[in-house]
Amino acid sequence: MPVPDRFRKTHSVLPGFGLALGVSVLSLSLIVLLPLSTLFWKSSGLGWSGFWQAVSAPRVVASYKLTFGAALAAAIVNGVFGFIVTWVLVRYRFPGRRLVDALVDFPFALPTAVAGITLTTLYAPNGWLGEPLARLGVKAAFTPLGVTIALTFIGLPFVVRTLQPVLESLDPEVEEAAASLGASRLQTIARVVLPALFPAWLTGVALAFARALGEYGSVVFIAGNMPMKTEITPLLIITKLEQYDYAGATAIAVVTLVASFSMLLAINRLQTWSARLGAAE
């Protein structure tokens, strides 16, 4: 019996496309889509005015400002220092390089609560770093600065691990070519190296930012959680849950979710862009 063309076309040398796609869709639905839709469904119980009230209360707005501001600041700090760390790891050979390389992943592996307690101990007014800072008149723990420090800690690996493979694949010959054409070292870095790394760098920074938006464990200890001052959005969600205000909690969560999702979408676009440029070799 002749097989209709429609089915023939999808036939591939790699078997199991149908099965693999089915499993992917099912698992994504169960793990990601279902909880997300529950979120929207729960928050819709408030109605438009209730929703607006929940997400625009002054205390909530203050938490957005802190969370987004600190996450952005942390992402920028990571963008600068993560770049330098990556450069050193890729371009130089020195004793202990592997150890430093492994250390970068540390924030991934460490339970966030442990990180939070450690950072608080360090930066508290009587801590190893907090005391000299206090003498300089800088208060780190229990201020927005402390929040930024914690978010910087957890975001670093995202920048380094995104940038590292791209920098490794950047052929040193390209820099030699620039030099042979008369470019100074500064011109080579600015016109050849940085533009080639820019998409990957931006992706790394965006990932660090997205991660920082949702961070809870490492922040709550060092933040001090003073209403209107050092309360982050994820903490407010927990607080609402503890007060059995499920709808209010999910409403705030929806705002965070939409923000994160737009970030991830932007990251995705960046990655396609960087992949297109990277296809040159």
């Binding site: 052929d171 010959e173 390209v174 030699e176 070519a177 620039a178 050849v192 533009p195 080639a196 820019f198 440029l277 990277g278 040159a280 070799e281």
Partner: peptide
């Protein structure tokens, strides 16, 4: 260069 070493973002 053997592998061209062109600037891929240009």
């Amino acid at each position: 260069f053997q592998h061209y070493a062109l600037f891929r973002h240009m």
